[in-house]
Design a protein around this nucleic acid. Sequence first.
DNA 1: GTTAAGGCATTTTTT
DNA 2: ATGCCTTAAC
Length: 734
Amino acid sequence: MDVTALLDGLNPPQRDAVAAPLNHQLVLAGAGSGKTRVLVHRIAWLMQIEHLSPGSILAVTFTNKAAKEMRQRIEDLTGISPRHLWIGTFHSLAHRLLRIHWQQANLPENFQIIDSDDQLRLIKRIVRAMNIDEKEFQPKQAQHYINSQKDEGLRAKHIQPFNDRWAQTMVTIYGAYEEACQRGGMVDFAELLLRAHELWLNQPEVLAQYQNRFRFILVDEFQDTNSIQYAWLRVLAGKVIPMMAVGDDDQSIYGWRGAKIENILQFSKDFAGAQEVKLEQNYRSTSNILNAANAVIDNNPSRLGKKLWTDGEAGEPIHLYQAFNEQDEARFICEQVEQWKINNSTKRYENIAILYRSNAQSRVLEEAFIRAALPYRIYGGQRFFDRLEIKNAMAYLRLMQNRHDDAALERVINVPARAIGEKTVQLLRDLARDEGSSLWQALMQGIEHKLLTPRALTSLSGFANLIAQMETTCSGIALHEQVDHVIKSSGLIEHHLKEKGEKAQTRLENLDELVTAARSFNMDEAIEKQLQNDVPDDALIQSPLAAFLDQSALDSGDTQADEFADSVQMMTLHSAKGLEFPLVFLAGVEEGLFPHKMSANDPERLEEERRLCYVGITRAMERLVISYAESRRLHGQENVNSPSRFIGEIPAEYMQEVRLKATIKKPVSNFFGTSAAKEATGMNIGQRVWHAKFGEGVILDMEGQGAQSRLQVSFDFDGTKWLVAAYAKLTAME
DNA sequence: GTTAAGGCATTTTTT
DNA sequence: ATGCCTTAAC
């Protein structure tokens, strides 16, 4: 193999990373610096130059989509089938391990993955069964508590809250939840990771097997790993497997979900002597856009330090539009899109993205696009397998697969209504709890010993027969026929037909779509993905139904229609990570919305919002249009917002204000900006300060210039206040 | 047991 | 404005 072919077209740091010896590596890769390229070339290098077999390489990605893309690009580059590479998300890799080693992981062979919705329902049931006050100890909070503990690697038995009644109750719920899951053979997302970690710790021979097998580990989006994910990697790598971590601290936007930027620093400590490479040359954006992004992110005090540069052209200034309200904003965007299309008639709509902070913003945009007859596609929102009707159908399938799946049983025992009410179900729950059995077992027992009213008994036997009937009919027929049969015989069609409005129609179409999804579900591919080399085969043969259920839980199922139609892409800033577009609109860049008011008073969360802004700006390749509305209707309420502080953080020289129809060539006045205020006060955002009356605090924002400079300070005890710098007499600390 | 009317909260999201 | 969930009436 010709070495140069793999290094051609790479810049020096990229080459350093790709052609490095087999040691630990930490690659800090800025936005648009060719990160994926380096990963793909590195894997190709390992296979072709270092002669590692595909089966000895493990690559972890953030999403299934990213995994798929990486496979494709490796195949395109090398011509080698990436089939034997272990590429996947932490969750899918953990899932694969647990399917293979279910016994060592102390799981039933047919364990099932439950999603967060099922998890919440289960927790709700537990909280109620324990007679815990739902107001004080909300199931949602309990869910969050449980997941965060699991993300930290802690089980209920590991936690000892002392005099904290709230935490004590949470731990109690956690423990009961663990038991319920174990009994029903249910595994939630966090549990996949936790079990996989425990598998390493408790089963040294399993760990040894994989330490023998893997010769190199690569981790993408390392800044978004949480504690348990990193722990899993660290144990696996041990002292024997070299690992390459690729990430960007400036693009860490999932802290609210347990992601730890600190893992980057920790990596350098844990794997001392790791080669560090910084990829700082940006190949994506014009220098105006890049400079603006740099200026914004520069306001974050806690950064590892990295400065993106480009030798590209300055390009157009960033356009800034002040709208009257959200309607006007949407109209303006439509007009800009039309204009762009006229000027670039050969280019496609899919080169355009509209990014916003929260999903609620998409509606107005959608309406405007419909009115303007412009093609669009909204990403995110509810996913296919999260839809009510789909979840119901899947619950029947799950119940067929595993009678002890309490979550599934609860979901459909009375959907469609078959006269099994809350009272009857509660009776079953009590019975199940006393016996330590599943709801299904309780149901059978109830029927057998006639423990219920005759009326309830009839309904219950009807339900039990229905499920048994389904299974009989479904044995031996194709997967999509099974799905079709279940949808029809369950009565779900009639049930949803009864709903009024257009919803009924959509729901039925979705159910149809589920049959289609089952038909196109490629069984061979699913098995192939699992049959990896020297793994005992019998551990991996799943029924088509079981494989389908697993996939539906783990894969977001981007089964949206017209995926390939040329359309403007609308999505949240979060889902835009990793993507790039020639033309990007950042909509709703207002205080309260972006940064979101929920994050505005906490310096750390504010930093994350700013990183989100950085991610948004750096998505743009050629043109960036930022808009904000003076007034915006949200939740049925009219709100007046000021432009986001992030706009003020972009130096005016890179911006130009835009009016509808005509462009006014007037630079933006920077009176609300931070740049001038920084000069005048000598302070910076994030600086800790002391005030004679309010005590200690942190600077969140600043505006104005000279003597008018004002500072927003979050005081440790007195909340957040705007102070005029000239009078406040703040003392810088630290 | 089923259905209809009021109360309440409402970031970001993959797995 | 909307959807979800609890509560009250059939």
